[in-house]
Design a protein around this nucleic acid. Sequence first.
DNA 1: CCCTTGATTAAGTGATTACTTAATTACAGA
DNA 2: TCTGTAATTAAGTAATCACTTAATCAAGGG
Lengths: 151, 151
Amino acid sequence: MKSTIAALKAIADGTRLRIVKLLLQYNYCVGALARRLDVTEAAISQHLKVLREAGLLVGEKRGHFMHYDVDRNALRALGAELEELAVIKREACKPEEEGCEQQRRGRCRAHEAGGECPEEVHFACHGPNADEKENGRNGHCECQESQKGIR
Amino acid sequence: MKSTIAALKAIADGTRLRIVKLLLQYNYCVGALARRLDVTEAAISQHLKVLREAGLLVGEKRGHFMHYDVDRNALRALGAELEELAVIKREACKPEEEGCEQQRRGRCRAHEAGGECPEEVHFACHGPNADEKENGRNGHCECQESQKGIR
DNA sequence: CCCTTGATTAAGTGATTACTTAATTACAGA
DNA sequence: TCTGTAATTAAGTAATCACTTAATCAAGGG
């Protein structure tokens, strides 16, 4: 989760994305990357550090040259994580589990049909206010796909 | 390409990733997001703008509430793009196409076997220097998987 | 043991970013 | 039309970031 963000941050940079793409194809050392990308070696080294610490690269010393490889599994995993987000579905309201009040939801649907939205269901959109939060309401059941059209 | 980076930058932020995850599940309006995430509405609005301009969200006005939905296709496409990177293979050297000198590569392998790396193949790792670049050498063929172990 | 070269680190700079508060725009109801 | 509320935008600030140059570390070859 936190490492996901670190990895996303690491690859969400033009120069670093170019580095990753180059290293996927070629086994360049640091100096070669610098020349190919027309960036100073120091800058490349700093970018490599970011990518390495994000788990996207692994380094290997050969002679006194340093070569970096992309951790393809980490890259795949990162992509998969985003794709998996995309399949999250709007949760259906389960009032019996969540302790929500069906009456209130019913009233929301009435509003959807053109009726008026009573004051008690305002948090359908806005979530619980401070008092409601203390009363354990989480405001989530009122904002489902099933009630699309409500506020 | 450029939009890829924008989308990655947009989602590579803790607060914005939380927004996306919430919006995948719930149909909150801006104020509800602000309350759920304990962030000011102004801050949320600015994050929503970033996500919207990156193509990850679409907004819809209902009454005078603003609801945002995640563009799941965009999210999927972004994840797929990262996964597709991971399958890029190290390119085999094609000297006939690239104008590289096989003799030189041969000498590199000799070095791999424990021999000495002659000065002329130094760019095997480092890419072309200024003069070589003018002579059309791209320094790429010498740095392939096939020559792993060379500098 | 020095000298050269590759790579990293240190320090400093300008640009960008995430946030705050305040002002503004947009909209619905009285 | 006026009022109150939702949302956005403006303006300012502290922190982070990508880059630069210079110094340092590491590793061979003479």
